[in-house]
């Protein structure tokens, strides 16, 4: 428990809350990477997932691809892209986007699949176009599961965005990577606690949003 109380002491030190190396700045960076990554991953995975769920095509392929993407080791991708493209924003972004795609994709197509066939049939029968079926029937009904996917993706990226510090970027990972280099456990624990707190807060926000949506239905 020494490491733990040391971490709390580290957190309580006011010097660690100011300047470019302080928590507020690192938190903003961390959230920035998370937002960027989830935005890019969503732009790729959500349309694809909706298309797969709507048409029912390539479902087997989608399952295989999400499985394979989950298997891609984040550390391996990160080091590889660093060697190819050099240090910068690209390597951690690529690694984190790959991490975020599987839950987003799965949420989208599983969400559409969960919609009752009879309901979409009825929507077509009353004269909706395919786009209207998707936009007015399937997506609203699938929203809880789609959001569930976004929630899982955000939490995974928050927890893993520490790796951005490995090739020299900022974010809360700095405390962990710098701490590891000099075996400064209190600093690592402090960084981890802030990440967990951040994840908790975001998870709570998602829970509130999802509950509001469920109440709607």
């Amino acid at each position: 428990m020494n490491a733990f109380s040391g971490g709390l002491d580290w957190l309580a030190t006011s010097a660690h809350w100011h300047g470019d190396d302080g928590f507020p700045h690192r938190i903003v960076q961390h959230l920035g990477y998370t937002a960027l990554t989830v935005a890019i991953a969503s732009a790729i995975a959500l349309p694809l997932g909706l298309w797969i769920g709507h048409t029912g095509r390539l479902r087997g392929l989608a399952i295989a691809v999400t499985g394979a993407l989950r298997a891609l080791p984040t550390l391996g991708l990160l080091t590889l892209v660093v060697i190819w493209r050099g240090i910068g924003l690209t390597p951690p972004t690529v690694a984190l986007v790959v991490l975020a795609i599987p839950p987003l994709l799965a949420g989208a197509y599983a969400g559409l699949e969960s919609v009752d066939r009879a309901t979409t049939d009825a929507a077509r029968a009353i004269g909706m176009t395919e786009w209207q079926v998707l936009g007015r029937v399937e997506v609203p009904l699938a929203l809880p599961l789609i959001l569930g996917g976004v929630r899982a993706a955000v939490l995974q990226v928050i927890a893993t965005a520490t790796i951005a510090a490995y090739p020299g970027l900022g974010g809360l990972g700095r405390f962990i990577i710098d701490g590891l280099a000099v075996r400064d456990y209190p600093q690592m624990v402090a960084g981890s606690l802030v990440i967990v707190a951040l994840a908790l807060i975001l998870d709570g926000l998602f829970a509130v949003t999802q509950r509001a949506l469920y109440r709607h239905q």
Partner: peptide
């Protein structure tokens, strides 16, 4: 699950 693995 959100606890970062490295410090753990």
């Amino acid at each position: 699950y959100t606890i970062p693995s490295l410090p753990l």
